[in-house]
Design a protein around this nucleic acid. Structure first.
Length: 716
DNA sequence: GCATCGGATTTTTTT
DNA sequence: AATCCGATGC
């Protein structure tokens, strides 16, 4: 147990605490991953707990893999018996095993966001609801919220007309999922909870099996997850949770950091251990980070400290726009690397929204420097990848309606909206999923002659017959071979390769997917489909390569880098404009910035552009309020409070009177711009005290300008 | 049934 | 800017 010697007293206290409920409040960089890992090792090595009786829940699959490897390194191969995984993956395993008690069967497929949206749109159509009035996205979010609170459609009591509609949609949506043998992300948790609540035998089996439960990132669990932990731990009460309320950044997906308080209430005998010493960052970085979250009130206000010393000041840089910002990032990295002061892999560039990655990518490409982008979306979100996966899912489970609808006419095979509507109707009458009906049709086409026009029947059979073959084939061949067969059958390669470069790229992606599938020869199709659906963004990150990494602040959680850039520090982006009128969301933006800052070991670089791109237009941007709150003495460069004149002239204040100000420019005015020449004013409006003028220039087309900044001159 | 065009709409973060 | 949607014409 040499590893115990490497821990500080608080860490050791946590690792060696006697069984029972334990709450570890761990600041960033305080070694919580080590504590969790060693705790498992200690349970096995010192207390003789059998790995089979341990459940460890992590936030990403990558974290799960790492933890497993580290436990194995500490206590040996027997550690493989520990159940380690994300909530979602663990629940999926339980549901497959216990499917007998549930309204779907064990080979269910997990519906991703895309499937969910598709289904909701279908449901709206079926219920004759206008998707303009009831935005599918909003409904989806509302349904997800209900699920995260543990509410099934039948338990939802609507209290307004809107909620009544919501209930209707939720009900229909849930039925669709079930008839397609699908389970969405939230369902994985919800059905597992339902199972544990309603089938005592199952609850007891798992509660007795998991003598010890450990949960990482506890501040980002939602209510259902909390209940799951509580029920699974109900027999032994050995629940070890680690979290940091200041790093709670997922409330929009139902996470509730108050689970930390709830835990203290539900387990009044819980031992609470504080880890405050930071082993990651310099004191300057910690001081800046604490300043950012100082306005938040909390019960346990932490004082982060390190023995590493002050270190470098935080570099703040003001830049004209996002392109210059990206150039600054790339040049700074290149010059530090050239001078031998850092390795390319020492750098991470973080941003608030994914859209910001593009300009950065372009800058790296232009400079000819390699980079890595963290984000599953990048690959698994591609149309061609989704198509190929939909085919595989369909072969695995023909009842999968979203997958069927996705590919039934891709490549085009004469099955249009009319035919699909007829197929749907026929399926509903027969009480079958459309895909199942197609299987029947392939076997006995004559049964359907009366229902479909000859033309429709022929088109449908053109799909139904191969589908029936794939369904057979799926049982006997590997996922990779199945994929190859299907794609060859439908001529997918020819469909993609249309002579354009984009087509080439798409086909490359399909081949990449095929390569991934070939890793699942042993585990089979079901495992492959599950893996590709549950990948998290971080899971796509491979450690080996020595290149800078681009990622969102959310994806940065749990990671650390010597040098961290956070870009786009302007009002509207960080904090995001969606948080402007909501105190809770604003607090979360603050924590998000805090998470970003505390990822850095040695040096932080913050940048803010004067102009922000929005929907293709440049708009003037104000420095983020968070930037101003960092004590200037911790920084070098362009701290907004350093008295650097912001815009030319007096600083632009959104005065109340300005709201009623009349625009100086009007549609029809002719104007001249020093750079773009003559143009015609299309319109002008006052927004936040600034006059925004839309001008159509002969030279460059339509531009939106701030009248106070652009030197626009009226001409007659 | 399908391709094309123009207009509207969009972006927060992700399992 | 990029994508999605619906209307139009073939």
């Amino acid at each position: 147990m040499d590893y115990l010697l490497t821990l500080n007293p608080q860490q050791r206290e946590a690792v060696t605490a006697p069984p029972g409920p334990i709450l570890v409040l761990a600041g960033p960089g305080s070694g919580k991953t080590r504590v969790l890992t060693y705790r498992v090792a200690y349970l096995i090595g010192a207390l003789g707990v059998r790995p089979f009786h341990i459940l460890a829940v992590t936030f990403t699959n990558k974290a799960a893999r790492e933890m497993e490897n580290r436990i194995i390194a500490t206590v040996g191969a027997q550690a493989r018996g520990v159940t380690i995984g994300t909530f979602h993956a663990t629940c999926a395993r339980i549901l497959r095993r216990e499917a007998d008690h549930l309204p779907f069967d064990a080979n269910f497929v997990i519906a991703d966001t895309d499937d969910q949206r598709r289904l909701i749109k279908n449901v709206l159509q079926e219920l004759n609801l206008d998707p303009k009035q009831y935005a599918p996205q909003k409904l989806h979010a509302a349904i997800s919220r209900l699920k995260n609170e543990g509410i099934f459609p039948e338990n939802f009591e609507p209290s307004s007309y809107g909620e009544k509609v919501l209930k209707q949609v939720y009900e229909a949506y849930q039925n669709r999922l079930l008839s397609s043998n699908l389970v969405d992300f939230d369902d994985l948790l919800l059905w597992t909870l339902h199972l544990l609540q309603t089938v005592p035998a199952v609850r007891q089996r798992y509660a007795r099996r998991f003598q010890h439960i450990l949960v990482d990132e506890f501040q980002d669990t939602n209510l259902v997850q909390y209940e799951l932990v509580r029920l699974l731990g109900s027999h032994y009460r050995n629940i070890f949770v680690v979290g940091d309320a200041d790093q709670s950044i997922y409330s929009w997906r139902g996470a509730d950091y108050r689970n930390v308080l709830r835990f203290e209430q539900d387990f009044p005998d819980a031992k609470v251990i504080l880890l405050e010493q930071n082993y990651r960052s310099t004191q300057t970085i910690l001081d800046a980070a604490m300043a950012v979250i100082a306005p938040l009130q909390g019960k346990h206000r932490k004082q982060l400290f390190t023995s590493r010393g002050a270190g470098q000041k935080i570099a703040i840089r003001r830049v004209p726009d996002d392109r210059e910002e990206a150039r600054y990032v790339v040049e700074t990295i290149a010059s530090l690397v050239a001078r031998g002061q850092a390795q390319p892999g020492d750098f991470a560039i973080m941003y608030r929204i994914n859209a910001q990655s593009r300009v950065l990518e372009e800058a790296f490409l232009r400079a000819g420097l390699p980079y890595r982008l963290v984000g599953a979306q990048r690959f698994y979100g591609r149309r061609e990848v989704k198509d190929a996966l939909a085919y595989l899912r369909l072969a695995h489970n023909p009842a999968d309606e979203p997958s069927l609808m996705r590919v039934i006419n891709v490549p085009p095979r004469g099955i249009g909206t009319k035919t699909i509507a007829a197929l749907r109707t026929a399926a509903r009458r027969a009480g079958l999923a459309p895909g199942t009906l197609l299987l029947h049709m392939a076997a006995a086409p004559e049964d359907y002659q009366n229902f479909f026009s000859p033309r429709a029947l022929k088109a449908l059979l053109g799909f139904a017959r191969p589908l029936a073959q794939w369904y057979e084939l799926a049982l006997s061949v590997s996922p990779a071979d199945l994929m190859a067969t299907i794609l060859a059958d439908v001529g997918y390669k020819e469909y993609l390769l249309d002579g354009t470069e984009e087509g080439e790229e798409r086909w490359e992606n399909v081949r990449e997917l095929h390569r991934l599938a070939s890793r699942y020869n042993e585990e089979g199709l079901s495992a492959f489909l599950e893996e590709v659906t549950l990948v998290s963004d971080q899971d796509t990150l491979e450690d080996a390569e020595n290149t800078p990494i681009l990622l969102t602040l959310h994806a940065a959680k749990g990671l650390e880098f010597p040098h961290v850039f956070i870009v786009g520090l302007v009002e509207g982006l960080l904090p995001h404009s969606r948080a402007w009128d909501n105190e809770d969301e604003m607090a979360e933006e603050r924590r998000l910035f805090y998470v970003g800052l505390t990822r850095a070991k040695d040096q932080v670089y913050l940048t803010y552009p004067e102009m922000r791109m929005l929907y293709g237009y440049a708009e003037p941007a104000e420095p983020s309020r968070f930037l101003e709150e960092i004590p200037p003495e911790l920084t070098t460069g362009d701290h907004p409070a350093r008295g650097t004149t912001y815009w030319q002239g007096p600083r632009w204040e959104p005065a109340p009177a300005a709201e009623t100000r009349e625009p100086e420019f009007h549609a029809g005015d002719k104007v001249r711009h020093p750079r773009w020449g003559e143009g015609l004013v299309i319109g002008s409006r006052i927004k936040d005290g600034a006059e925004l003028v839309d001008v159509a220039f002969e030279s460059v087309g339509l531009k939106r300008l701030d009248a106070a900044l652009a030197r626009l001159e009226k001409i007659t």
